[in-house]
Computed example of a mutant assay.
Amino acid sequence: MSSSPNRLLAVIFGAVYLLVGLLGFAYTGGVGFLATQGGLILGIFEVNILHNIVHLLIGAALLIAGLASVPAAKGLNTTVGAVYLLVGILGLFLVGSSLNILALNAADNVLHFASAIVLLAVGLGADKRSRAAV
């Protein structure tokens, strides 16, 4: 694996999101698949079963992209960053509503915005030469 910021970030974020997805199942016993309120990881991040599955899918995709190539990692970091920015914005309106099928709370929204900023910054700003060379 080359020393690419995008590949490194994708592998790290991928591993973390996989672990969070797995850990989430320890906190969602008795929580419905689409429950609008869920278990609390670390006492602050709310999750339901669907939220855990989303974390697993995103984690696996990031990890695979990070291990695959610079263009794959760069593209997925940018895409996931943009999606997390959208989820963060939507989360501001969904918390406390019946449409909150991911059981989002304020702490989740902050984490989604932070993830979006880091993923977009690296995805759009790093490895510029790699894109031109490929």
Rank of each mutant, 00 (worst) to 15 (best):
M1N: 07
M1T: 13
S2N: 12
S2K: 15
S4C: 05
P5I: 10
P5D: 07
R7V: 00
R7Q: 14
R7M: 02
L8F: 10
L9W: 01
L9H: 06
A10N: 07
V11N: 03
F13Q: 06
F13C: 03
G14H: 05
A15K: 06
A15D: 09
V16R: 02
V16G: 04
V16C: 06
L18T: 14
V20M: 13
L22P: 10
L22S: 12
L22T: 15
L22N: 13
F25L: 12
A26Y: 06
A26E: 13
Y27F: 15
T28I: 13
G29T: 06
G29W: 00
V31W: 03
G32W: 04
G32I: 12
L34Y: 14
L34D: 01
L34C: 06
T36Q: 12
Q37D: 12
G39A: 09
G39F: 05
G39I: 11
G39Y: 06
L40Y: 03
L40K: 12
I41A: 06
L42S: 13
G43I: 12
I44W: 10
I44P: 00
I44F: 14
F45W: 11
V47W: 00
V47Y: 09
L50Q: 11
L50M: 13
N52M: 13
N52G: 08
V54Q: 00
V54Y: 00
H55D: 04
I58D: 02
A60I: 10
L63D: 09
L63S: 07
L63Y: 13
L63E: 08
I64W: 00
I64Y: 01
A65K: 07
G66V: 02
S69T: 12
V70C: 00
P71L: 05
A72F: 03
G75E: 06
G75N: 12
L76D: 08
N77C: 13
N77G: 03
T78M: 10
T79D: 03
T79C: 01
V80P: 04
V80Q: 03
Y84S: 14
Y84L: 15
Y84V: 15
Y84A: 14
Y84E: 14
V87D: 07
L90W: 06
G91M: 05
L92I: 10
L92V: 09
L92H: 01
L92C: 11
F93H: 05
F93A: 15
F93W: 02
L94K: 10
L94G: 04
V95F: 00
S98W: 00
S98T: 15
L99K: 08
N100W: 02
N100I: 08
N100F: 02
N100Q: 07
I101T: 13
L102Q: 11
L102R: 11
A103L: 09
L104H: 01
N105S: 07
N109Y: 00
N109P: 05
V110C: 03
H112E: 07
H112P: 04
H112L: 05
A114Q: 04
S115E: 05
S115M: 15
A116T: 05
A116K: 04
L119S: 10
L120E: 07
A121R: 09
G125W: 01
G125Y: 01
A126P: 05
D127P: 05
K128P: 07
R129V: 11
R129P: 02
S130H: 03
S130G: 14
R131M: 09
A132L: 15
A132W: 09
